[in-house]
Simulated assay, not measured.
Amino acid sequence: MAQRSLPRGMGSFFKECGHPQSRWPKCLHPYKIRYQSEAGRQAEESGFADQDAAIDRLTDIYKEKKAAKQAQPKAERIRKYGTMRFADYAEEWRAGQRHLAVQSVRHLDSLLEHHIYPALGSRRMNSFDHKVVDAFIRTMERNGTGLATQSNAFDKLRAILLDAHRLGIFPDNPVAGVKAPQYDPARAVIPSPEQLRAIRTAGDDAFTVIVDLMSGCGLRNGEAAAVNLSNIVADDVYRVSEQVVMSTGQYGPLKHRKAGEYRDVPLPARVGETIEWYVEKYGTTDGYLLRQPTDPTKPYKHYAMDNQWRRIRASGAVDVPEDMVLYGNRHFFASNCLAQGIPITDVAEWMGHKNIDVTFKIYRHLMPGSISSAAQLLNVGLAA
């Protein structure tokens, strides 16, 4: 009997009619759910009209069990979780991260599997303190782990340990006082306006559209590949609502967002003109500008823009900054915003960063001004 399982600890749903899963949405037979009760016994419920109703019920049960777990006396929680292996605790924590998009879950799994579990997976939860966390960071440094990966791994470890801290496993915050890994701002290589003008026309017409959307609207590579005429919601506003997911080659939700969530970004007139020019020349497919040249029914592939970028760099025909990657066109957007005095809070929102700390880490050095210039500006408003 086929069944669909939710993340670990939440249970599964199925039908007993014998139809394949592909037929379930059209089949009139009710869904059933299976889960473990608080007593650890397998339980089933039936009569759910559709998949969403079954999932909602499993989610409610999971929340009830989690609430019951957190309501246990502190001493009991410490006994239960204090001696638990970190990997086991982390798996329970991961099951509760239902708000994460598919790509974010894959990223989390990669960090756990390749960086966190090898170093800390077998360690007992009650043995963590700031020294253990600091040693983990130093190990990543010795192994030559990239700064971005170091920072992401630390963020995930901190989230898991803070969850345990709220349960009372640690008397003190185990990450308090730990110096987090820092991104190197020099890694954000940004083209000059003159270089950008040459780069945008160095590839084919689709490449021009992608570069303009990244440098003019702050879109990520995959978001630019999913550009759709219907997402122009005002003359100067573009609604970013999906991306071409690199791992699947299909349209999917935005990074750090659920399906249906979006962000609105400025649409400069020059970028709007590029979109109109491309649509007039090539038309659209269901509103999408960019599709696979050999099969217009499929989304534009990441490798198409990556291959062009490699050829452009290798040709030497265009002045490309040393070590600049395709993502540097998006960095140009942030740099341009900050140079024009646009608040970094707005820049963070338009770029779709999960929190403003990411924006500060990467672009703080680009923010104009200094203490001296601030003193001069503030002086204007003071009484003589």
Rank of each mutant, 00 (worst) to 15 (best):
A2H: 05
Q3S: 15
R4N: 11
M10K: 14
H19L: 08
H19A: 14
P20T: 05
P25T: 07
H29Q: 11
K32Q: 13
Y35C: 03
Q36V: 06
Q42K: 10
A43G: 00
E45V: 03
A54N: 04
D56A: 15
L58G: 06
T59Y: 08
T59G: 10
A67I: 07
Q72P: 01
Q72L: 15
I78E: 02
R79K: 15
K80N: 15
R85V: 11
R85T: 07
Y89I: 01
R94H: 06
Q97C: 09
H99V: 09
A101K: 05
V102S: 10
R106W: 05
H107T: 10
H107Q: 12
L112M: 14
I116V: 13
A119Y: 04
R123L: 13
R123V: 09
R124E: 14
M125D: 00
D129E: 09
K131R: 15
A135R: 14
F136I: 00
I137R: 01
E141S: 12
L147S: 14
T149G: 06
T149D: 08
A153Q: 03
K156L: 12
L162E: 11
A164Y: 01
H165N: 13
L167F: 11
P174S: 05
P174K: 02
P174N: 04
V175K: 00
G177D: 04
G177I: 02
V178A: 05
K179C: 08
A180L: 09
P181N: 08
D184M: 02
P193E: 04
Q195V: 09
L196Y: 03
A198C: 09
R200K: 15
A202E: 02
G203V: 01
G216I: 02
G216A: 01
G218N: 04
R220D: 06
N221A: 14
G222R: 00
N228R: 01
N231D: 15
N231R: 01
R239P: 06
E242V: 04
Q243A: 08
S247D: 12
P253Q: 04
P253W: 05
L254Q: 03
E261I: 08
D264W: 09
D264C: 10
P266Q: 14
P266T: 10
P268Q: 06
A269N: 09
G272W: 02
E273A: 15
E276Y: 03
E280Q: 14
K281I: 03
T285E: 11
T285H: 13
L289P: 00
L290V: 01
R291V: 15
P293C: 09
R311Q: 12
R311M: 12
R313D: 04
S315P: 06
A317F: 05
P321D: 08
M324I: 09
L326F: 15
A334H: 09
S335K: 07
A339L: 13
A339Y: 06
G341T: 12
V347E: 01
V347Q: 04
A348L: 04
H353D: 04
K354D: 14
K354C: 03
D357Y: 07
V358E: 12
L366H: 02
M367T: 14
P368E: 08
S370R: 02
Q376R: 12
A383N: 11
A383P: 11
A384G: 08
